[in-house]
Simulated scan of single mutants.
Amino acid sequence: MKISNVGGIIAAASTKLARPMLQVGAIPIIKRIVISFRQAGIFPIVIVIGHKEDEIKYQLSSYGAIFIHNEAYEEPPLFDSVKLGLSYLQDKCDKVIFSPVNVPMFSPDTLRRMLSVEGDIITPSYKNQGGHPVLLSSEVFQSIIEYSGDNGLRGAISAMKEKRVWLPVDDPGILYSVHNHQELKEHLEEHNKAILHPYLNITLEKESLFFNGRVKLLLFLIYYTKHVRNACDKMALSYSKAWDILNKLEKELGHAVVDRRHGGKHGGRTDLTEEGLQLLVAYQQFENTIFSHAHREFERIFLKKGVL
């Protein structure tokens, strides 16, 4: 079962090329991309890391990101990170939005427009110049993963040019990269307006909180990895903390959400119970509904009336 329709991939591994912690305004560029992805309802968000991975995890561990390590991060082609991300998400999402970390200034509205267009490969363009991010449908995942020709992702997409849709957008941020830091700074005020949003932290509570987005991500990862420890590794969560979360969740609900199977030839295994899976799916649907409604109302009440 696919829990989510649209996932995201951010390539941030390269030692020489990626600058994920570059500060533009009050936050690093990688956080800008994650904020934009979250505003567009993208889940899960996979960050392919290597260089500065501890700093990235520290900055984003509470943002519901999944971290995948690129072993060849000293000098990996960007395309390696694309393949790693797609390989991870190909059985989990119908569509993926991909962005290199060095292009952080596109707007959430551009993402929403891309998601509203039919096509297997959607590339935004500003004044006839293509930029990032790029939307890929599951129909092209395997072709991109298997591509071994020249020019990386650009070459893989060119080999399927009949599947590509160009989407004109009024967003110069799709072109701005860290190679022109001054350009990023000049676009900062406009981008801050674009990412202005209500912060929604949806929780389920009785006398205290027992379910939120971080618990959702833990269940999501357990569902796919079948191991709590592997799930923890991918979301920068300690193993003991994960079991504290799961034990509290089960106590509050009055039933099991994970099925623990110890030992065996290949070690222990943990899966979601039917009730745990139903909870995960229901929370994801509830969150999507609330976020969509909140965005419409925020725009109607604050933006259209010129309050902000």
Rank of each mutant, 00 (worst) to 15 (best):
E162K: 13
L115K: 10
E183W: 14
C232Q: 08
V215D: 03
F141M: 03
S125Y: 02
D233S: 14
N230D: 09
L221S: 12
Y223P: 00
Y223F: 15
E190Y: 05
G131E: 05
G155E: 08
M160N: 12
E186Y: 03
R164V: 12
S238G: 14
Y147I: 01
R112D: 12
L221N: 09
L167I: 13
R113T: 14
K193T: 04
E118Q: 09
K163Y: 03
S208M: 04
P198W: 10
K193R: 13
L111W: 08
G130D: 01
K241Y: 14
L219Q: 05
V228S: 06
S137E: 03
Y126D: 00
L196C: 08
S148Q: 10
V140Y: 05
G149H: 07
P168K: 10
C232I: 06
T123E: 05
G119W: 01
G130V: 11
V215Y: 04
V165G: 01
H187S: 01
K226M: 07
I222S: 07
M160F: 08
F220V: 02
K241R: 15
T225N: 13
H179Y: 15
T225D: 08
Q142W: 06
H227S: 14
L175M: 10
F210Q: 02
I157E: 01
Q182L: 14
F211L: 08
L153V: 02
K161T: 08
K241I: 00
H227T: 01
P124K: 00
D171I: 09
G131W: 12
I245K: 11
L246Y: 07
V140Q: 03
G149D: 00
L184F: 05
L167F: 11
K163N: 07
G130N: 12
T225C: 09
S137Q: 06
I157L: 06
Y126W: 13
K241E: 09
V178A: 05
S177I: 03
L221F: 08
N180D: 04
R112C: 13
V117M: 11
E205R: 15
P124Y: 01
I157A: 10
G152A: 02
A194P: 03
Q129D: 01
D171R: 13
G149Q: 08
A159R: 11
K193H: 08
K226A: 10
G152C: 04
S116K: 02
E205A: 14
A159Y: 14
S116Y: 01
L221I: 03
T110Q: 10
S143W: 05
E139Q: 10
D233A: 15
R112W: 09
L115Q: 11
I144Y: 01
G119T: 02
D120Q: 03
L221G: 04
